[in-house]
């Protein structure tokens, strides 16, 4: 119910006045607006939110660490680096090859971290995300250096800030890639939970540890690179939403995954709506709202758990 309201709300707001009636009656002006801008934007928001939240859950399960998610394990920064490399070295290629390069880099760098972390079953659980963030800092330094060297730092800042204003018809379609990802994740949810119990435990149950570990990381990497390429970096959603879901619904991943996806989608929609309204008729990047609100919520979760 909240979901539907949020969707309609997101479709409705914008510089051009649209009434609810307009949404359903197809006058030429409004339908054009809808098709070119509003619907792509809303769909992108929904899929990005859902995809990132699911990616966060997978990461949590693989490493058995509540505070590890793409934005605290360097995945986000790895994807930025990869896509920047794609842009720099193969500027003439289209979206898909660039995504491929970004994905490759992101996958390699994330596996590097996740594999080494996942094998430690019980190290200090708070220390690992700290290391993850530091890992991200290093990758970021590399990205900045490349940016400075090729004189595209200003450009880079522009498209790396998570912003949905660029989701227009003709540019956003790649986001549909996230649908099969979420479906596959749902299918294998149970196995990811088992993987989190450790290598020997997993092998005992006759599950191919390396294969499914790789698959989980690959799914995460695809989601993150796609969203970075299309909308820029969105922090915290992947970290906060799974934690909130587990707070309210417990820890059964298979059961929770649909909730997680829907909550992720709703939170991103709401953040984007706030971003569009707060300095209306201008809009600010959604990632700023997410960064501030997400940090706040995460701090509250952290303080509650740390007690």
């Amino acid at each position: 119910m909240i979901f539907i309201c949020a969707v309609i709300f997101s479709l409705k707001i914008g510089v051009e006045e649209l009434t609810i009636k307009d949404l359903f009656s197809a006058t030429s002006g409004s339908s054009k607006l809808l098709i070119i801008s509003r619907i792509p934007r809303t769909l992108t928001l929904l899929l990005t939110g859902a995809g990132l939240a699911v990616a966060g859950v997978i990461m949590q399960q693989l490493t058995r660490n509540k505070f590890l998610a793409p934005s605290t394990a360097g995945t986000l920064d790895a994807a930025k680096l990869g896509i920047l490399m794609g842009l720099l070295f193969f500027p003439h290629l289209g979206m898909l090859p660039k995504l491929g390069i970004g994905l490759l880099v992101c996958f390699a760098l994330t596996s590097f971290f996740t594999f080494s972390v996942a094998e430690i079953v019980k190290k200090d659980s708070l220390l690992i995300p700290v290391f993850g963030v530091m890992y991200g800092y290093v990758l970021n330094a590399l990205t900045t250096m490349l940016g400075v060297h090729f004189n595209i730092i200003q450009n880079m800042e522009g498209w790396l800030i998570g912003n949905f204003a660029k989701s227009l018809q003709g540019q956003y379609e790649l986001i549909f890639l996230l649908i099969p990802i979420v479906v596959i994740s749902y299918n294998y949810a149970h196995r990811f939970t088992i993987l989190g119990m450790g290598k020997s435990f997993t092998l005992n149950l006759g599950i191919n540890y390396r294969f499914f570990m790789g698959l989980g990381i690959l799914l995460t990497a695809i989601t993150v690179s796609t969203t970075v390429l299309l909308v820029g970096s969105i922090p915290f959603i992947d970290l906060v939403v799974p934690n909130l879901v587990s707070l309210f619904h417990g820890d059964n991943m298979h059961k929770n995954l649909p909730f997680t996806a829907v909550y992720g989608a709703i939170s991103l929609l709401l953040c984007d709506s706030i971003a569009r309204l707060i300095i209306y008729p201008y809009e600010m990047p959604a990632s700023m709202i997410i960064g501030s609100l997400g940090a706040l919520v995460f701090l509250i979760i952290l303080l509650k758990k740390g007690r």
């Binding site: 708070l126 995300p129 915290f236 960064g291 940090a295």
Partner: peptide, 17 residues
């Protein structure tokens, strides 16, 4: 470490603000 993690989160918060 707990304080450190809070510091890290705060720094992301400061950054977006």
């Amino acid at each position: 470490y707990f304080i450190l993690l809070i510091g890290l989160v705060l720094s992301i918060f400061f950054h977006s603000t």
